[in-house]
Design a protein around this nucleic acid. Structure first.
Ligand SMILES: [Mn+2]
Ligand SMILES: [Mn+2]
Ligand SMILES: [Mn+2]
Ligand SMILES: [Mn+2]
Lengths: 219, 219
DNA sequence: AAATATTTTTAGACAAGTCTAAAAATATTT
DNA sequence: AAATATTTTTAGACTTGTCTAAAAATATTT
């Protein structure tokens, strides 16, 4: 069954929103995520429902079917593999790879995807620390804690970021917080929950709670 | 100025047809090349003309403007670079790369193109022997003769193919005629212009005139 | 130079994907 | 349980890219 690029983007949005909840995803949520009018979403969910990619009940919301979820997982696999390619092979920075991957992910060829995977050495995580589904759609669960929940003296490595915005990633780059960096909490300020940390056992930084809420650490 | 994927395909078709002639390209020619109704082409050439990508006179045909030609050349650059990537890095065969490159070429990012070019080592020719334009749009002229025009005793290397169809390329593969192969003409049969050749100083083959018309040889 | 054939354009239609404004359904507050 | 607010759907419109059938222009033949 032919799935358009637009339909693929809806599936990804629903998948993403479904990661945070088990409830059906409302048309408004999808509209907000995709920056689109709610009316457009209503039209599309009807179409996706007819194609059996989602379960949709009027006024209730949408849930991916198994087929829809498999399709979304495959898109994520392609997106993340392309991100790895762009960073590792074409030396793009981690704040530059997302937009290009957003387009490359729509090229549909299992052969291309699987050979790219092999060429990259079957990476398990993308440049933002997100797990890459394998050809069967299985992905490793990342063992992580949110930095904001840790305390004085806790230490570990940066294994992922929650936010993916360019500005956030660039900010992290500026304070030399790259994926894999070692972080130790020196002090947690009760007042605004900001943290004084040492990066790579060398550089001291103070980061806001907003930042630490978006960093995943493996202890 | 935003150029859609569809518009890009028209530009490429006009470019391709323009390589064989200096005359304006008729809507029918474009329609045939793209396997589309002539009426659709008429609509599109009007649009391309408004965007100053082609010069178009009703009932006369279309010629690329400098802007249009630059755009087409850039698409060809991307197409051929991706073909090299697929063959060299992902080990696809030369009869498999075209369709994927047809999609990859529409991803518009000069940075991506130029980094891919660098990653591949600035190749000058693609897997079919076609020249790859550089970032400025310049490409090397290939020094070639059509095999069908040569005579007994002539020899050289296969540097390109005219036809790009899967079946033709697969046929060549079967008789071990790959790019770079050495070819010597043993005998030219007057009757049907077929040729007895020796490939790589080893394997003897008889090829039809239809085949030899499509092979470019460097003496 | 007419008649005929071919090519090209126009006219009108349709599907996909989007929007705004209005109506209907659902949720929240009083 | 009404009244009010919010969410969601419907209705109608628009753009892009395509098609078929008919009309108009151009080219070829007689
Ligand atoms: Mn991404
Ligand atoms: Mn990512
Ligand atoms: Mn090609
Ligand atoms: Mn090629």
């Amino acid at each position: 069954m032919r799935i358009s690029q637009s339909e693929e983007n809806y599936l990804k949005a629903i998948y993403k929103l479904s990661e945070k909840t088990d409830k059906p995803i409302s048309t408004n949520q999808i509209a907000k995520e995709m920056m689109m009018a709610a009316a457009s979403v209503t039209d599309m969910v009807k179409k996706l429902s007819e194609k059996k990619l989602i379960h949709y009940t009027k006024y209730k919301g949408a849930i991916l079917t198994d087929t829809g979820e498999a399709k979304a997982t495959d898109l994520i696999r392609k997106h993340r593999l392309w991100e790895v390619f762009l960073l590792e092979k074409l030396s793009f920075a981690w704040d530059e790879v997302h937009d290009l991957a957003e387009e490359l992910e729509h090229i549909n060829s299992d052969q291309l995807t699987n050979r790219l995977d092999a060429f990259l050495g079957y990476p398990k995580f993308d440049p933002h620390g997100d797990p890459i589904p394998d050809a069967q759609g299985n992905m490793q669960r990342r063992d992580q804690s949110i930095l904001a929940t840790l305390n004085n003296g806790d230490k570990g490595h940066l294994v992922g970021v929650q936010e993916h915005s360019k500005s956030f990633l660039q900010y992290l780059g500026q304070i030399s917080l790259t994926l894999g960096a070692h972080i130790e909490i020196i002090e947690k300020y009760e007042y605004d929950q900001s943290l004084k940390i040492i990066i790579n056992k060398d550089k001291e930084s103070i980061i806001s709670n907003k930042v630490s809420q978006n960093l995943f650490i493996k202890l």
